[in-house]
Write a protein that binds this DNA or RNA. Structure first.
Length: 391
RNA sequence: GCGCCGUUGGUGAAGUGGUUAACACGCUGGUUUGUGGCACCAGUAUGCAUGAGUUCGAUCCUCAUACGACGCC
């Protein structure tokens, strides 16, 4: 990489608006906390509620950017931990930042790596200290040390539009005492991360923890909000087999303490039903691996519930995955063909179902927006659930 | 025609005179929520070619029959 090339990249970077995320609350539904608004970014303005496809390693698995755009994707998510290991933040910086590297001309949110510490090192040795976390690489087992500062520095280099604070993501089964200490530490980490954050184009979000405990969520939210982030997430949900009730409690106990004029992001969720429940409770954006993961295992979201294309009953079914769906997959392929691809292990099968599942969740958020505008989200939920859960 | 060997589920096959016939694949379901893991979990032969016999008891021993492989005329 020549000096001139690097210089060119610097100019491009500085040529941007230097605008962090701006959230405009446009309407709050009359009967619930559900809200509709817009997120203004350097790459355009997007409406909430929004679902973000997950592209951990700088790719939404198996999908091209055209396919993501066709599914109406707005922000996509990528991951600090994975990109730190491969190809490394310096490589991505030299390639012009994450957008240019992966040819995505839309906004990107980078997760901090906090969740990977939890998920990669689950049941394995990890050492969480005040300074940071020692754990082992899933690739070659080498010892790694991730700190709040390091996570933010990497995200600065990746040049994502939204960076996440480095938090501890304790399992749902963690004790009250553990959670309390964990929250205190996460708040100290949030402060340290914010102190080194210096990318003028990049927003920084704080993360609320506290399990399903009302006082802990309140405390975590209030202390995090004091640090004045550009947006706030509710973390520590949808992990370790927690109940849906606990997930909804975590939301309910956090939302009242988050400012109205900032984005609220429920991390890692999810299932269609959980997205609806989240929106009703005041959440703006979601991300989840489910649409792409279940797709690779042959399953699809539909209005009539989740279906499994492995099932023998689809062997000769010429209908699309979901009747009336506007996605590329449903406009072009039958269940019979996709079942054939899935059962024979052909990669097109997972791709086609990923396209459908992502479009399904994005369309769900589009409909939720409309419902908020029309003050009828409770009716929307009722109708959706009646059909989705009947069997 | 004679001799010899063999016949276990959808498939490839292990195995034993005595409670539930190994394993793999396939098949049939299910699971997956800030993606190490195209993964994980469960079910899948009331029966071991057919008939008779020996035995307290046979898929396993004996005999006959059917089918198949090989060798000899």
């Amino acid at each position: 990489m020549s000096f001139f090339c690097f210089f060119d990249i610097m100019n491009k970077s500085q040529g941007r608006d230097s605008m962090k995320i701006k959230y405009n609350l446009l309407k709050t539904e009359k009967n619930t906390k559900a809200r509709f608004g817009t997120i203004k970014t350097n790459y355009g303005t997007y409406e909430t509620p929004m679902f973000m496809p997950v592209g951990t390693k700088a790719t939404v698995k198996s999908l091209s950017k055209e396919e993501l755009k066709a599914a109406h994707a707005g922000i996509i998510l990528s991951n600090t931990y994975h990109l730190w290991l491969r190809p490394g933040p310096d490589v991505i910086a030299h390639c012009g930042g994450l957008h240019k590297f992966m040819s995505w001309d839309g906004p990107i949110l980078t997760d901090s790596g906090g969740f990977q510490v939890f998920s990669l090192a689950k049941n394995k040795k990890k050492d969480i200290t005040e300074e940071g976390v020692h754990f082992k690489s899933h690739i070659d087992g080498q010892n790694l040390f991730l700190t709040p500062e390091k996570s933010i520095e990497i995200q600065n280099k990746l040049d994502s539009d939204i960076a996440m604070s480095f938090d501890e993501c304790p399992p749902a089964s963690a004790s009250y005492e553990y959670l309390k200490n964990s929250i205190e530490r996460t708040i100290r980490w949030a402060k340290r991360g914010k102190a080194v954050h210096n990318n003028p184009n990049q927003a920084l979000f704080g993360i609320v923890q506290g399990g399903a405990h009302e006082d802990l969520r309140k405390y975590s939210a209030e202390e995090t909000v004091k640090l004045d982030f550009d947006g706030y997430s509710i973390g520590g949900v949808a992990n370790d087999g927690e109940s849906k009730e606990d997930m909804y409690k975590a939301i309910d106990y956090s939302i009242p303490y988050l400012p109205e004029n900032k984005v609220r992001y429920l991390m890692g969720v999810g299932e269609p039903v959980d997205i609806i429940e989240g929106v009703i409770r005041g959440v703006d954006i979601f991300d989840c691996v489910l649409p792409t993961r279940i797709a690779r295992h042959g399953q699809a979201f539909t209005r009539d519930g989740k279906i499994n294309l492995n099932n023998a009953k689809y062997k000769e079914d010429l209908s699309p995955v979901e009747e009336g769906c506007d996605c590329y997959t449903c406009r072009n392929y039958s269940k019979a063909y996709i079942r054939h691809l899935i059962t024979t292990g052909e990669m097109l099968g997972g791709r086609l179902l990923s396209i459908h599942n992502i479009r399904f969740l994005i369309k769900l958020t589009e409909e939720l927006r409309e419902a908020i505008k029309n003050d009828n989200i409770l009716e929307y939920r009722k109708n959706f659930l009646e059909r989705y859960e009947k069997k």
